[in-house]
């Protein structure tokens, strides 16, 4: 198995990388802020975050602030470990070049 196969396919998309990077250095981040940091559309962010939630990499919290629904995200321990591993592989790949 080559090292490339070890790269986590779940983090292939730029949006997913972005979500994980932001959550790694922050606590809860809400939908609007995530959207403006990543500069993506609502649908794009929703589908990628749903994907990450399904893998149990992030935790999603839905609540009401007044009458407005508010969605926030936080990284899980599984997600933190998986993303760290992904970063290590990326670094190794670049160094071995």
């Amino acid at each position: 198995m080559s090292i490339i196969d070890k790269l986590n396919k779940d983090f292939e998309s730029r949006v997913r990388l972005g979500i994980m990077s932001i959550l790694l250095v922050n606590d809860w981040v809400d939908f609007t802020e995530m959207k403006s940091l990543l500069a993506v559309t609502d649908g794009n962010l929703a589908s990628h975050s749903a994907g990450l939630e399904k893998m149990n990499y992030i935790e999603v919290k839905k609540e009401f602030v007044g009458k407005k629904p508010k969605t926030s995200y936080r990284v899980t321990n599984t997600g933190r470990v998986a993303f760290k591993e992904h970063l290590d592989f990326l670094e190794k790949l670049i160094k071995s070049k």
Partner: peptide, 21 residues
Amino acid sequence: MTDKHQEDLMHIRSMMERSSR
């Protein structure tokens, strides 16, 4: 391929920095 990884890393670093500072 490696270029893409390098870009990925840069993207990650910039996102971490921009979202926390």
